[in-house]
Design a protein around this nucleic acid. Structure first.
Lengths: 232, 232
DNA sequence: CTAGATATTGATCGCGTGATCAACAAGAGG
DNA sequence: CCTCTTGTTGATCACGCGATCAATATCTAG
């Protein structure tokens, strides 16, 4: 709007209509059937799903207005309409993905009765390499979070949630005499190892699948469990 | 020069001189005194230094032709002239930074006579937070390596180098009865924890400085050292 | 002192990014 | 059936990216 007359790269100096005719330049943009009119809540959910899938498949870096729009079959301006900014979209998508993973893993672990077996299930699930996509999102997040305080905040929240999930699993398998402080320490140890080992596996470093043995060993000692209690 | 006539954003349809006059459009690009003519080796070294500084200060993501050129006080095309591609520049810069860090830390550790004190010095140096910039480069590298096999290869090389440096330090402090396989296992454990804890610290997660205690505890046990041997 | 070799440059291309906004159209309420 | 709210769109802007190449400027060998 305003400043009239820029069309086709050429400037027509005399034209000062006061308002541009936007369609005049005619560049094909999307060539897509118009998206059906939907309730804001549904559309927001659909865009979130598209963003999550994209991030899992291509990484957080792949979250662009146009890429998310294409995956949802929608104009890029619609994505911008629903997301206040890309920084927020990235942070929210991270939270959704990681939050869902935590809920899923937690549910999977809770289904196991025996505390030792449950702890083992939790650790094994975290390290079996079946969640490389989520691990990739974590690593992307640590990297991007250095430049995005919004994402950094989201990352800290999810790490705290994971920490307490690990503490829960540890407590059930630990002797009652263990204090909260000790459980926190062991949980921090486990979380650091899980994150480190997963980052390593992401670049195909180290013998695959050896991670569980490493962690199980130290956790068994810390919780005074018999050797091999967490590796069957 | 070719395809004539594009100047100032306007297209003069009739002009078909066969060759363009490239300078005609006159857009200010750099406004910088011409860089002194230098030997290729010196210039390459200077550009590498600029790239390393930039990566340490702003992350591997900040490595662009134009950013490196600006820091070196040189035209961006000169950077492109010396680097076969940005992917290579990024991988080489990563290798330089991390390789230098390893050499430095190694030298610092070797200067310590007592094996236990040396091991402690190594671990403390890795975790004291004074190398956040290098940690950032590591995290960026893990993230980018997923899309760059060139960088992934460089990352694996440096991880292997670090692994053996840690093994060296462990061996000196370990009982002679420990086998190579055990030392490898403990080193893998330490490396995973260092990387995990450093990633955590990068987003300000967790109590600062608690990392050394965590690692020292497990290493003392694994090497059959007296409790507190690595924490003074 | 000149001529050749080559280090360095500026311009340009084609593409991708986030953001913005008037215009359009589809469904809901009267 | 018509009106109005609002979900949706296309075009556009200003920017930054890696890469390429003819032209230029400088150093050096003869």
């Amino acid at each position: 709007m305003s400043t009239a007359g820029e069309v086709d790269g050429r400037v027509s100096p005399g034209v000062a209509v006061g308002r541009v005719t936007p369609g005049a330049a005619a560049a094909i943009a999307d060539a897509r059937p118009r998206a059906s009119r939907t309730s804001p809540a549904d559309r927001a959910a659909q865009l979130a799903t598209a963003a999550e899938g994209l991030a899992l498949e291509e990484g957080l870096h792949a979250l662009t207005l146009r890429a998310v729009a294409a995956r949802a079959g929608v104009a890029s301006s619609l994505v911008a309409h629903y997301a206040p900014s890309m920084e927020r979209l990235v942070a929210d998508t991270f939270t959704s993905i990681v939050g869902a993973e935590l809920a899923e893993v937690r549910a999977h672990a809770i289904a196991v009765r025996d505390p030792n077996a449950r702890l083992q299930a939790l650790l094994a699930t975290l390290l079996d390499g079946s969640r490389d996509d989520v691990t990739g999102v974590w690593v992307d997040a640590w990297s991007i979070a250095r430049r995005s305080s919004v994402l950094a905040e989201a990352v800290r929240e999810q790490m705290t949630a994971w920490h307490s999930a690990i503490v829960d699993a540890l407590r059930a398998a630990a002797p009652a005499s263990m204090h909260v402080r000790e459980l926190d320490r062991v949980a921090a140890h486990v979380l650091a190892m899980v994150d480190g080992l997963n980052a390593h596996e992401l670049v195909d470093y180290g013998p695959t699948g050896s991670g569980l043995a490493l962690i199980a060993r130290v956790v068994e000692r810390e919780l005074s469990l018999p050797e091999g209690a967490l590796t069957r």
